[in-house]
Amino acid sequence: MKVGDRIKVLRLQRGYTQHSMAEKLHIGRAHYSHIENNRINPSIDNLSRIADILNTTTDYLLDRTGDTSQSSVDIDHPAIQLLSRAACRMTEEQVLQLRRVAEVLYPDAFRE
């Protein structure tokens, strides 16, 4: 997985939209979308801020370690891969609706 793919999976798991991430980073949503779609690499500063927002490490985002240290996500798990591919074909609103449904059906899975 590339940097943008890892960022997207963690963003979706945390329930953030591209718009909210862009606002937190003080960049445009289109610029942020380019990062997630691996069209551009984030600057070192933005990579560090993204890691902080997503509660993970830059090493994890850069695929230098399989352990997120601050996160327990196994993004290589087939179910995560399937959900990630599906989310790529959904609107931001559809992704949020899916998360809300999953939280109702499986509340224990969403507890910190």
Score class of each variant (00 low, 15 high):
Phe110Thr: 08
Leu96Met: 13
Pro107Glu: 06
Glu23Lys: 14
Asp59Glu: 13
Pro78Phe: 04
Arg99Gln: 15
Tyr106Arg: 07
Ile27Asn: 11
Ala79Asn: 11
Ser48Arg: 06
Met21Ser: 02
Met1Tyr: 07
Glu23Met: 11
Asp5Val: 10
Val101Cys: 09
Asp108Tyr: 05
Cys88Ala: 14
Met90Ser: 14
His34Lys: 15
Arg99Gly: 03
Asn37Tyr: 03
Asn46Gly: 06
Ser48Asp: 08
Ile7Arg: 02
Ala79Lys: 10
Ala86Trp: 10
Gly15Cys: 06
His77Tyr: 08
Ile53Val: 09
Ile75Asn: 00
Leu25Pro: 01
Ser48Glu: 10
Thr68Asn: 12
Leu10Lys: 04
Glu92Ser: 13
Leu82Lys: 11
Leu62Phe: 04
Glu93Leu: 11
Pro107Phe: 00
Thr56Val: 08
Thr17Phe: 08
Arg39Ser: 06
Arg111Cys: 10
Val3Thr: 15
Leu25Asp: 01
His19Pro: 02
Ala30Asp: 12
Lys2Ala: 01
Arg29Ser: 09
Ser84Pro: 00
Gly66Tyr: 08
Arg100Cys: 04
Leu25Ile: 07
Tyr60Asp: 05
Leu54Ile: 09
Leu62Arg: 10
Gln97Phe: 11
Val73Arg: 05
Tyr16Lys: 02
Ala109Val: 05
Glu92Asp: 15
Tyr106Phe: 12
Leu62Glu: 04
Thr58Leu: 06
Thr65Trp: 07
His19Leu: 14
Ile44His: 13
Arg64Ser: 00
Leu54Lys: 04
Leu83Arg: 10
His77Pro: 00
Leu10Glu: 05
His31Lys: 11
Gln70Arg: 12
His77Met: 08
Gln13His: 13
Asp59Cys: 06
Asn37Ile: 02
Ala86Met: 15
Asn55Pro: 00
Met1Val: 11
Ile44Cys: 10
Asp5Lys: 11
Glu112Lys: 13
Leu105Tyr: 10
Met90Tyr: 11
His31Pro: 00
Asn41Phe: 01
Thr57Pro: 00
Ile35Asp: 04
Arg64Tyr: 03
Asp63Asn: 15
Arg100Tyr: 05
Ala30Val: 14
Ser69Gln: 11
Val3Pro: 04
Leu61Trp: 00
Gln97Ile: 14
Thr58Tyr: 02
Gln18Lys: 11
His77Phe: 08
Asp5Trp: 04
Gly66Trp: 02
Pro107Cys: 06
His34Gln: 15
His34Arg: 14
Gln81Asn: 05
Ser48His: 07
Leu82Tyr: 10
Leu105His: 11
Leu61Glu: 00
Thr56Tyr: 03
Asn37His: 06
Leu47Arg: 06
His77Val: 01
Thr68Ala: 13
Ser84Cys: 12
Arg85Thr: 14
Ile44Met: 13
Gln97Met: 15
Ser20Asn: 07
Gly4Tyr: 01
Gln81Thr: 10
Arg85Ile: 12
Asp108Ala: 12
His26Lys: 14
Asp76Lys: 04
Arg111Val: 12
Leu62Tyr: 01
Ser33Cys: 07
Arg49Glu: 12
Ala79Trp: 01
Ser48Gln: 10
Ser20Arg: 09
Leu83Ala: 13
Gln70Asp: 07
Asn37Phe: 01
Tyr16Pro: 01
Val9Cys: 07
Asn46Lys: 15
Leu61Phe: 00
Val104Glu: 14
Ala87Ile: 08
Asn38Pro: 08
Ile75Thr: 02
Glu112Asp: 13
Tyr106Glu: 07
Glu36Tyr: 09
Asp67Cys: 07
